[in-house]
Design a binder for these strands. Structure first.
Length: 292
DNA sequence: AAAACCAGCAACCGCTGTCGT
DNA sequence: TACGACAGCGGTTGCTGGTTT
């Protein structure tokens, strides 16, 4: 880290928070194949380091943040490409029902990163996009509110009653309805793992306004989540019947999309064999991070 | 054939948490 | 303890390609 950081020219005048990049000279918009090539070459050679220094060192006129995003969401070799499978979708829906709408100040807040962590090769951005474009509509079509995961008709009825407290007690019933309707969600698990109700929106105002109580609820759920995640199978293990979803055993397998890329070839990156890089790169990444 | 509309996705923006000094 | 740098996260935007009129 220090090795890279000393390359940056800070001065006393720089005191105060700097913008993450020089807005005037930074390029925005879609990445070109050449930029991708530079970034990949740099990261494979040097490993991930201080992102702010990456564009400078890699010869890119990009914001460090932009480089990180491009790498993590698109260029990372261990990414899966293509649409989410049915199994993956189900996991996303299930986790969303438990993690979604977690809010500290009444703001919508979905833990996409936590969901993504359970889907190897998928990024939070990808899952978020897939949710907004596909799953949301799917659920609405099925008559399920994508935010609360309650059946829409039931929600409308409870809204008519306009009693927030009454919503809290409809959760387990709703889960059963979901199972009866489509069989997608395992409602028994849902109800067991969410004894307190998952969504703040389902809780009475009096409870939501009680910080200490909400904290304890959250802590309970956190431990529950640990147990839950341990019980969730890795999607790959289940998807063997799907030809598009064969388990990818190695970096090389996961990089198939790179080999197929029409924009640039493997040799453009300056290396010939991904498998050689797989171990060395990962080692480098780890060592570089430690060494910084 | 052209314009309007729509859906999907990549990328950006702003905020927050963490770490180092 | 305060402050700045940085990485990471989630919501939003805007571009692009496809479809409909």
């Amino acid at each position: 880290m220090l090795g890279v950081r000393h390359l940056l020219t800070y001065s006393v005048d720089d005191m105060g928070r700097q913008p993450c990049c020089d807005k005037l000279e930074v390029k925005k918009g879609p990445w070109t194949a050449d930029e991708d090539k530079k970034l990949i070459n740099f990261l494979l050679t040097n490993g991930q380091c201080c992102w702010r220094a990456v564009p400078k060192l890699a010869g890119l006129r990009r914001c460090g943040k932009s480089c990180r995003l491009r790498w993590t969401n698109y260029l990372r070799p261990d990414l899966k490409r293509g649409l989410l499978t049915e199994t993956e979708e189900q996991i996303v829906i299930d986790l969303h029902s438990r993690l979604g709408n977690r809010s500290t100040h009444g703001l919508l807040c979905v833990r996409w990163s936590m969901i993504a962590a359970k889907l190897p090769g998928r990024t939070d951005n990808e899952i978020k996009n897939h949710w907004n474009t596909h799953i949301k509509k799917k659920l609405l079509k099925m008559g399920i509110d994508p935010i609360t995961h309650e059946p829409l008709n039931k929600q409308a009825a409870s809204q008519e009653n306009s009693s927030p407290a009454s919503q809290h007690f409809t959760q387990s019933d709703n889960n059963h309805q979901v199972e009866e309707t489509d069989g997608v969600l395992n409602s028994e698990e849902n109800s067991v793992s969410s004894p307190t109700g998952d969504n703040e929106s389902l809780l009475p105002d009096s409870i939501c306004s009680d910080d200490s109580l909400m904290n304890s609820l959250w802590l309970d759920q956190t431990s529950l989540m640990d147990a839950l995640w341990a019980s969730i199978p890795e999607p790959d293990a289940e998807n063997n019947n799907n030809e598009n979803d064969m388990p990818l055993s190695s970096w090389e397998d996961n990089s198939a999309w790179l080999l197929d890329s029409k924009d640039f070839g493997v040799h453009d990156f300056g290396f010939n064999c991904f498998s050689e890089i797989e171990s060395s790169t990962l080692q480098t990444l780890g060592m570089e991070e430690k060494g910084q």
